[in-house]
Nucleic acid binder design. Structure first.
Length: 590
DNA sequence: TGCGGCTATTG
DNA sequence: CACAATAGCCGCAG
């Protein structure tokens, strides 16, 4: 047993196909150690290709091989995207560290959607629109031989071969190893590019954190959020009645809810409550004239006519019926009581994590249904005032940093500005969001005087945005201004770009710090059986055995200190977290 | 059938 | 309705 097979590439290069145990030694011999970059290509039927330095390796027992190398070597796996992590999770394998080419591509070049072709082309100065396409026949007489050696992933002109991109390597060990070598080469090229940037933050650290956040995203999608289905159904029943057994019952329920609103009218017909135009007409009939029918506007008119209150109640129920009702439960909660959605490590605009299946906009009334499993607890931690603290750190405004050393940042700001706390908070938020109208005016001028460095940081960003130029976050991620295009006249579009840029540097840097915190918790929490089950911009929800609750709570605080210290590089801002140990997510809501 | 507008929810 | 997001339904253009 353990005899070495060899796969011969067409160019004569020999890739050893090794059993898992021997692969570990081969990786070590090639220079692989803890944290070293190892190219990884996960194919099908157990095929796995690796590349360490110049050395190509492969295995036909990929799951065991990756698991053994992870356990005994602990490299930083180079992958094209989180899809590889998802494939590994499907085989029961979790890896600790990654270099995610797509995540790093976003840092270098902005945007959020890319594939290996775009990543490769951008890195090598090629126009991906001009590259070869799968199935393309060379009708113009060019010889296919011009492309060089087809057993290599790249052509003579530097483009990736489309059949390789499509996965032709996935069943051949030698080819998988070659594809892994391509990924590793791309990672090294990315490191080179990152090193050429001049940014304030540690851009290599950002690249590692954003990469590892992609592993976390794959795990969040795979593991899901624990939900108690009977509790969820009880909440829904209270709003829209019991689960309809067929479409006729569902229709009857809708009609009954509609009728409860229309009953307040003299003529209860001809109004579709789902049509904003009809609702506006309905309100006009009872003497209420509004430019739109949004809830915050109608809230003030509850007393004017009973139909307003009925309509607002109807809207709540309608939302449960259509978006967060039984259908949503059936579609997104598995038989194991886990709510699953796709996760993205970095959205297009500000670099936050996003999630589907309602994980990021779950109505507060459904939170009681998010329950820890038996013998487990949730440890929930949310960061206090993260955006102004981040602004203090990235702008290096010494006065604002002093304010950010307090538990409540707005208290010293209020004192300094000579206003009350609510006014101070509005002024700070207005500055970060680019608000110019409203009541914030006077306090905003105070901000200019009290915190000129922070205010200049924001106004400089706004200027760059208005001019349509690109900018980078503190950590080094590119913000492309052409990602936002606003209809309307030039001036309002420029103003919108200014607000976007102003906010992107704050919200974006906050998102980057948050991810450093999250991946630190992920790494340090494994020994305590702690799994992050939800990331919510400034909040982490961690699921762990009941006995470890207190230790995990301490861990969340310790990891925040570790993460923020590394991230802010001596700025001296204090970051604070509110931590609680609970059975249900609702118990923790501040 | 695709898309913009309106609406709701979250941080 | 200042910044960011996901998601549903309606009305309209093609």
């Amino acid at each position: 047993m353990g005899r070495e097979r060899r796969a011969l590439g067409q160019d004569g290069r020999v890739t050893p196909v090794l059993p898992a145990a021997e692969l570990v030694a081969a990786v070590r011999a090639a220079g692989g150690g803890a944290g070293a970059l190892v190219g990884l290509a996960v194919g099908v039927h157990g095929t796995v290709g690796l590349c360490v330095g110049e050395v190509r390796l492969a295995s036909a027992d990929g799951a065991a091989a990756v698991a053994a190398i992870e356990r005994e070597v602990g490299p930083r796996w180079v992958i094209w995207s989180g899809a590889t992590a998802s494939a590994l999770l499907a085989s029961g394998i979790r890896v600790h560290r990654a270099w995610d080419l797509l995540a790093v591509h976003r840092i270098l070049f902005g945007g959020w959607r890319a594939d290996p072709v775009r990543i490769w082309c951008r890195l090598h100065g090629l126009d991906h629109e001009r590259g070869p396409v799968l199935g393309q026949l060379d009708l113009l007489g060019g010889s296919v031989d011009d492309d060089g050696d087809p057993s290599l992933p790249t052509r003579r002109d530097g483009f990736l071969r489309p059949e390789w991109v499509a996965g032709a390597w996935a069943t051949h060990p030698a080819a998988a190893a070659e594809w892994a070598a391509t990924a590793l080469a791309a990672a090294l090229a990315q490191q080179q590019r990152l090193g050429e940037l001049s940014v304030a933050g540690d851009v290599l650290a950002l690249a590692r954190a954003e990469s590892t956040a992609e592993l976390l995203c794959a795990e969040l999608a795979h593991d899901g959020l624990p939900v108690d289905v009977p509790t969820a159904e009880a909440i829904m029943a209270a709003s829209v009645g019991p689960r309809p057994r067929h479409e006729a019952e569902a229709a009857a329920g809708r009609a009954a809810r509609d009728a409860a609103v229309l009953a307040h009218l003299v003529v209860p017909t001809g109004i579709d409550l789902r049509s904003p135009t009809d609702v506006k007409a309905m309100l006009r009939r009872v003497g209420i004239d509004v430019p739109d029918t949004r809830a915050w506007r109608l809230e003030a008119m509850r007393d004017q006519h009973p139909v307003v209150d009925a309509l607002l109640t109807w809207r709540k129920a309608e939302r449960i019926a259509t978006t967060f009702g039984y259908g949503w439960l059936d579609a997104n909660v598995g038989h194991d009581g886990r709510l699953r959605g796709e996760w993205s490590g970095s959205d297009g605009a500000a670099g936050r994590m996003t999630a589907q299946a309602g994980l990021h906009n779950l109505p507060a009334e459904l939170r009681p249904a998010v329950r820890a499993e038996p013998g487990h607890v949730f440890v929930r931690a949310d960061l206090g005032q993260i955006e102004p603290r981040v602004l203090a750190a990235v702008s290096r405004d010494t006065a604002f940093i002093r304010a950010a050393q307090e538990d409540d940042l707005y208290a010293p700001v209020a004192t300094r500005l000579g206003v009350d706390r609510p006014a101070a908070k509005i002024a700070v938020l207005a500055a970060m969001y680019g608000q110019t109208s409203g009541t914030a005016g006077q306090a905003l001028r105070g901000m200019e005087t009290a915190y000129p460095v922070a205010m200049k940081y924001l106004s400089d960003a706004a200027t760059v945005g208005m001019e349509g130029r690109e900018l980078r976050t503190y950590g080094g991620r590119l913000i492309r201004m052409y990602d936002i295009e606003n209809a309307g006249d030039y001036r309002s579009a420029a103003a919108a770009r200014g607000r976007y840029a102003r906010n992107a540097l704050v919200q974006g840097a906050a998102a980057e710090l948050f991810k450093v915190w999250a991946v630190t918790v992920r790494a340090r929490g494994a020994d305590l059986g702690a799994r992050i089950v939800l990331c919510l911009h400034d909040e982490l929800l961690v699921h762990c055995p009941e006995a470890n609750g207190a230790a995990v709570a301490q861990l969340l605080v310790d990891c925040l200190h570790e993460a923020s210290t590394r991230w802010q590089q001596g700025a001296g801002v204090r970051f604070v977290a509110d931590v609680s140990i609970v059975q249900s997510w609702a118990d923790a809501k501040a």
